[in-house]
């Protein structure tokens, strides 16, 4: 990497800058929406909350929970994507491309349809299970054969597994037409209409996974120099890989349980961050979390306004933003490792 991107002061200022961007987008997300609310009223809602004031209620219930959920989900997906790109050495790796979103989604919708599961904690565990199964399956299929993991094989296997799970999920719509609107919510992804209490039950797991992810920076850096080198440097490569896998499953599976299938954040964010900091995972992981959170908050904000008075599902927004990026990477060539 060049001198500019490796300089420590630059990295610290980038970190501070992305934190400021994050705070700004968070504030905007709370202040702006379908019901126009002045900044003063928004601040009042926090300082002296009045339960009878309709605007205060909107801020504290719907807007705030939305912004917090977008933060958690965006950060989780971005970190999961960064770790997956490192683990598979595949620039196109991301939770949705690996079929993890679709797998978690399928298991959650199946549980909701057939076993009348409806608590978020249960969704979460089922989501973890689905994420682990789909991700494991794709990883296994991608590494079949002599030449090991190839980016192309993984993307194709991921596309097939996703298609399978999505088709099954849509099939369940017919079994229970009553649920069509709520299933649509999962399929399209959304951060609205969820109570903060529900998030709180999932948050501990995501938080623990996130903290572990921060500490994985150094081992991942070593792992990136190749398995053999890493082993010689005294790194337990198997343990590191398993840890990465578990963290990814918790982050991605938890995100789907909270917000349904939201694509492309996990793909795009790590690339943007890597472009700024270079390939150092000590920086990539925290910066991905911040940038992912900001990006998803802004996507959610945009989703409120593009087709007023209706709202665009946020998964649609991220797909519109992310596809050109995916195509750009695909054109650049995916054989390059990193």
């Amino acid at each position: 990497m060049n001198a500019f991107s490796s300089s420590q002061t630059v990295k610290i200022s980038v970190l501070i800058l992305s934190f400021i961007v994050f705070i700004l987008s968070f504030v905007l997300s709370v202040a702006l929406g379908k019901t126009p609310i002045t900044f003063q009223t928004a601040i009042d809602a926090f300082t002296h909350y009045d339960g009878n004031n309709k605007e205060h209620v909107i801020i504290m219930t719907s807007r705030l929970s939305r912004a917090i959920i977008a933060t958690v989900v965006g950060a989780s997906l971005a970190v999961a994507g960064a770790l997956m790109q490192a683990l598979t050495r595949n620039p196109l790796a991301a939770p949705d491309i690996f079929g993890i979103n679709a797998g978690a989604l399928f298991f959650i919708v199946a549980a909701a349809t057939f076993f009348s599961v409806d608590s978020l904690v249960q969704y979460m565990w089922i989501g973890f299970l689905g994420a682990a199964i789909a991700g494991g399956l794709v990883y296994l299929l991608g590494s079949l054969g002599g030449d090991g993991l190839s980016p192309i094989k993984i993307v194709l296997a991921g596309a097939a597994i996703s298609a399978l799970f999505i088709s099954f999920t849509q099939g369940m719509l017919v079994i229970d037409e009553q649920k069509i609107q709520s299933i649509l919510f999962w399929l399209a992804g959304s951060v609205s209409g969820r109570e903060l209490d529900m998030l709180l039950s999932v948050l501990p797991f995501i938080a623990v996974a996130g903290i572990i992810a921060l500490f994985l920076g150094k081992p991942v850096n070593i792992l990136m120099s190749g398995d053999d080198v890493a082993k010689n440097l005294g790194l337990n490569t198997h343990l590191t890989k398993v840890m990465i896998g578990v963290v990814v499953v918790f982050l991605a599976g938890g995100s789907v349980a909270i917000a349904g299938s939201i694509g492309f954040i996990g793909l795009v964010v790590p690339h943007i961050v890597k472009g700024i900091t270079g390939p150092n995972y000590l920086w990539i992981i925290p910066l991905s979390a911040l940038t992912g959170a900001s990006l998803l908050i802004m996507a959610d904000l945009a989703a409120r306004f593009v087709i007023m008075p209706q709202e665009m599902p946020i998964g649609v927004m991220t797909a519109f933003l992310g596809t050109p990026f995916f195509i750009y990477i695909a054109r650049k060539g995916v054989t390059k490792r990193g």
Partner: peptide, 17 residues
């Protein structure tokens, strides 16, 4: 194929919208 997968995702998003 890769670009096709990308465009598919875009079209799916469009249909959902």
């Amino acid at each position: 194929i890769l670009i096709g997968i990308g465009i598919s995702a875009l079209m799916n998003a469009f249909v959902t919208m």
